[in-house]
């Protein structure tokens, strides 16, 4: 019994760390631009398909397949910002409808270009199972969790130590004040949106080391990321890790002890409760 609990908690922890990386891009976009990106799950799915295509055409390993996808996603993000979002700044409802339109286009694109069959890849160079006593975790998940931690630290350092990152935080705190301090807010927003989309490619590539992509993958990652961002509090990179771990462990315990198909229930219940009782998030700023 204890073994089952330990196994469940450990795999929940690892999953949580992976979810943290998935939610990171959304957190940057929401934190900096106050933009409700309803297409986040779709962008994750699109990046997973990109990984699949890149690996199957070039024979690269999944773990490095994000390298060509990353600049493409960054550019797409900048273009979407200048082409669409810039024109609707300050009207959040229009932006929501806009992002849902983008989401529909992506879903459709994935179906047309990739078909409806699930796309899986052969194992990457990281494979096998790590055994600690009676616990077993696949190396690819452990590797993904480690990458997630490293990426979160890099993004955190970028936001708090570099000039561009600090400008992003300033623009998120007070747009007008940042503007008056000589920060080009439009450019910062474009960069933040590009960065948020580019950050999706890395988790997607690592997810493809042990998962398959299909046209409904977006369902799994969209609302999940929003739950993590809500728990973490507005744009807090450091809050993402504990929030994602809570989500991961809650999900894993419910899958083990209640029912596998109820896996999303604890997440959304937690999410709704946190929004009601602590709208600033569990780890948000006061």
């Amino acid at each position: 019994m204890l073994d089952v609990v330990a196994q469940s908690v450990i795999s929940g922890l690892i999953n949580g760390l992976i979810y943290a990386m998935v939610a990171l891009g959304l957190s940057v976009i929401y934190g900096v631009m106050d933009l409700i990106n309803f297409a986040h799950g779709e962008f994750v799915m699109l990046a997973m398909y990109f990984t699949f295509w890149i690996v199957s055409f070039s024979g690269l390993d999944q773990t490095v397949a994000f390298l060509p996808a990353l600049p493409i996603f960054f550019l797409v993000g900048v273009l979407i910002y200048y082409g669409m979002l810039n024109r609707t700044m300050g009207t959040p409802l229009s932006q929501i409808a806009l992002m849902l339109g983008v989401a529909m286009v992506i879903r459709s694109f994935v179906q047309i270009a990739g078909g409806t069959a699930p796309k899986g890849l052969p194992p990457s160079f990281i494979f096998g199972v790590l055994n600690i006593g009676s616990l077993a975790i696949s190396y690819s998940r452990v590797a993904t969790a480690v990458v997630s931690l490293v990426l979160l630290i890099i993004v955190h350092l970028f936001l708090t130590k570099t000039y561009t990152g600090l400008s992003m935080l300033a623009a998120s705190d007070d747009r007008t004040a940042a503007y008056l301090m000589g920060i080009n807010v439009k450019r910062i927003y474009a960069l933040a949106f590009g960065l948020g989309l580019a950050l999706v490619t890395i988790p997607a590539a690592f997810l493809m080391t042990y998962q398959h992509a299909d046209p409904s993958s977006y369902l799994r990652f969209g609302l999940l990321s929003w739950c993590i961002v809500a728990l973490a509090g507005l744009g807090r990179i450091s809050g993402i890790i504990p929030a994602a771990i809570i989500v991961g462990i809650a999900e894993s315990l419910v899958v083990t002890f209640v029912a596998p198909e109820a896996h999303s229930l604890p997440i959304y219940l937690l999410f709704i409760l946190v929004i009601w009782l602590k709208p600033k998030g569990l780890f948000g700023r006061k």
């Binding site: 849902l100 529909m104 286009v105 879903r107 047309i112 078909g115 409806t116």
Partner: peptide
């Protein structure tokens, strides 16, 4: 297959 959501979007 699946082009109509794109046009709708």
């Amino acid at each position: 297959l699946g082009i109509y959501p794109a046009i709708f979007g």
